[in-house]
Amino acid sequence: MLYWLYNNGNEGKAAMQLKKIIEILKADVIFCENEEIEILTACGSDMMSDALAYVKDRAMLLTGLVNPQTVRTAEMLDMPAVVFVRGKVPGEDIVGLAKAKGIALISTRYRMFTACGRLYAQGLGGGTDDI
């Protein structure tokens, strides 16, 4: 359930603007106040406790889980954005919560592995590889 976007830590990887992530994932923007925000690392998981356990840097979450706890998890981790994979679209309650917290939501039709792989190949890392 947890797909980390790292090889050797964050070596050779750099921050990426959200607008480039949207382009790479051919994603639809559900809510976003600032597409120029810098994303430092990313984490792909459908289990929120795994994200809560391992995400250390200011990161973006990719997930197939669509419920308000996705946004809550992002809030606790100071994540500026959440990507819903497999074309999932959140309901109005989730979008409302994201707006209140200032967390961008985007949706891509790519599956989890492909979405993570496309971002990693373009230079976005997964942060530290320490567990």
């Binding site: 359930m1 929120m48 809560l52 356990a53 889980l65 419920n67």
Partner: peptide, 17 residues
Amino acid sequence: VRSLGFGAGMGLANMKR
């Protein structure tokens, strides 16, 4: 609960972490 993204047995461990 697992289908809601929790229940993986990480809760208390994360609290300690």
